[in-house]
Design a protein around this nucleic acid. Structure first.
Length: 335
RNA sequence: GGCUAGGUGGCAGAGUGGUCAUGCAGCGGCCUGCAAAGCCGCGUACAGCGGUUCGAUUCCGCUCCUAGCCU
């Protein structure tokens, strides 16, 4: 069950490698990553859109300080919850982190559940203008007056291809396509033609961890949420709520769990209801993550509840040409 | 025991003699700068048995069950 990537054979030293460890929430990625990184000269790069936020630790199941002390983790706590983050910024940050790691003679282990970020890394991301608050506000204002359907019609006129692939009921994408057009005068369809994978000459090994049975994942998710509450998740959200500058519309506060607890704090529903909704939202997130995962043809799948996953992954890595443990001491911990 | 009101898909909850409620959950999928986001698709549900009818989830009867009231 360890075959599939076809990277075995040439153990060229100096080869730039990268390991991708993907999986739905609650599949035990973080612990696995730690074990791999302690066995091989690796540094962890978090591939997670929620772990970038400071002060969001419990609800995101962020690796603890103790874990960070054992193995360097990158891209954690790099944003304030009032800020936003994006696939483009992530790609840039991840590339920098990888280059630093390679420079240190080690290899990056990219771990996380934000599958779009993995996708952007593997398939490349086009040079597009960043989100522009004013233009977005303009478009939203217009949408309130005319409705999104009218904006979709507008998109159809400037970029028929985009309009054809973006559903009328998908405001987020209609807005982005229009935003790009207004900012550059060029269609998003055309701009997206040019993409280069950041892994162009990198030897990539892809792992996916997930429970074989969906029931197991659901059980795990429910248990984990209970533990989060016990660990003070509600207080964590309350602290953010009481800051006063955050709203339910901030990307950070739309994260699973935070959104539902925020609503409860705003007086909309009991804690019990919020908990049920949060758990359901987590299950839905996991389902979407699995949909992405199934498209990764080169990935090797591992049953997450299996006690020997870490060992099997290590075997696969050594077979794939990874060097044995070196005596390089960890450095550059960012958390 | 009697009376009354009800029994609709996993849950909530409309409704009609012959097209679809809907919401939530679930499942599948989409996905290029908000992605833990946004979006699309998917359900021979009408308690059971008879009857009326060209046709019954909808009308009638009986049975079972539930809730409230009464003795």
């Amino acid at each position: 069950m360890t075959n599939g990537a076809g990277t075995a054979g040439n153990a060229r030293l100096g080869t730039r490698r990268a390991i991708l460890l993907m999986g739905p929430t609650g599949s035990g990625k973080s612990d696995l990553a730690l074990r791999l990184a302690e066995a091989l000269p690796l540094e962890i790069i978090s591939v997670d859109s929620a772990l970038v936020y400071r002060g969001m630790d419990i609800g995101t199941a962020k690796p603890s300080a103790a874990m960070c002390a054992r193995v360097p983790h990158h891209l954690l706590d790099i944003r304030d919850p009032a800020q936003s983050y994006s696939a483009g910024e992530f790609t840039r940050d991840a590339v920098h982190a990888m280059q630093d790691i390679w420079r240190r003679g080690r290899q990056p282990l990219l771990v996380g559940g934000t599958m779009l970020y993995f996708h952007a890394l593997s398939h490349g991301i086009a040079q597009l203008p960043e989100a522009n608050l004013e233009v977005r506000a303009d478009i939203e204002r217009q949408a309130e007056l005319t409705g999104w359907a009218a904006l979709h019609v507008e998109l159809q006129q400037v970029d028929p291809a985009a309009a054809a692939r973006i559903h009328v009921n998908d405001p987020q994408r209609i807005q982005r396509a229009l935003e790009v057009y207004r900012l550059t005068g060029k269609t998003i369809t055309g701009l997206q033609q040019k993409r280069v994978s950041v892994f162009a000459d990198v030897d990539v090994t892809e792992f996916i961890v997930a429970p074989l049975e969906r029931r197991d994942l659901h059980t795990r998710i429910e248990m984990r949420f209970g533990q989060m509450l016990t660990s003070g998740f509600l207080a964590e959200v309350r602290t953010l709520y009481e800051r006063g500058d955050l709203t339910a519309e901030h990307p950070s506060m739309r994260a699973v769990g935070y959104r539902q607890l925020w609503r409860h704090l705003a007086g909309q529903g009991s804690l019990d209801e919020a908990g049920k909704q949060a758990i359901a939202a987590t299950r839905q997130l996991a389902k979407r993550q699995l949909t992405w995962a199934r498209r990764r043809e080169r990935a090797q799948w591992f049953e997450s509840v299996h006690p020997e996953v870490a060992g099997k992954m290590l075997d696969a890595l050594l077979e794939g040409g990874f060097s044995a443990p070196s005596d390089v001491t960890p450095q550059g911990s960012l958390c």
